[in-house]
């Protein structure tokens, strides 16, 4: 199984083939559309991470030593970014997720969506992922 670092490297490589912002965004949107929607029963307050503009729902699935997540958002673009974060975290050792470094999002050129000024709930989501993994 690939490690978080290997998965990050894979994503960075995938994005490096995309020439401009439009292509990157199209790819993110595509990922967002592909990420399975959560059933309504999971869209409750305990899983909700409220951003100023969009909402993220994050459900942890904790095993003995590893952790996985399912997540959804009302914004397709945010969903695409979520799927990147989930991709590098799912079935990974809890310790690795607890100290998840999101620099790879910057490396693929989408870092501005993880800056604290972005009000989309993503920063809070990463924080919550780490908390669940502790």
């Amino acid at each position: 199984m690939q490690t978080t670092e290997e998965l990050k490297a894979e994503l960075i490589e995938n994005f490096s083939f995309l020439e401009d912002l439009d292509q990157k965004y199209e790819y993110v949107i595509e990922l967002g559309k592909k990420l399975p929607m959560l059933d309504a029963q999971f869209k409750k307050d305990e899983f909700k991470i409220k951003g100023c503009q969009s909402t993220v729902w994050l459900i942890p699935e904790v095993a003995e030593t590893t952790i996985s997540f399912r997540a959804d958002s009302d914004s397709v673009f945010v969903k695409g970014l979520i799927s990147l974060l989930i991709y590098v975290s799912n079935n990974q050792p809890k310790d690795d997720v607890a100290k998840l470094n999101t620099d790879f999002i910057h490396q693929i050129g989408l870092g501005n969506y993880l800056s604290p000024t972005r009000s989309n709930g993503l920063v809070a989501m990463v924080k919550q992922m780490k908390l669940y993994a502790q």
């Binding site: 914004s75 397709v76 009000s119």
Partner: peptide
Amino acid sequence: HPQDIGIILDTEGIAIRTG
């Protein structure tokens, strides 16, 4: 979602407010 409208318009240099 309004936020997605704003994100795509920004790629065209168009600044609107969403939310």
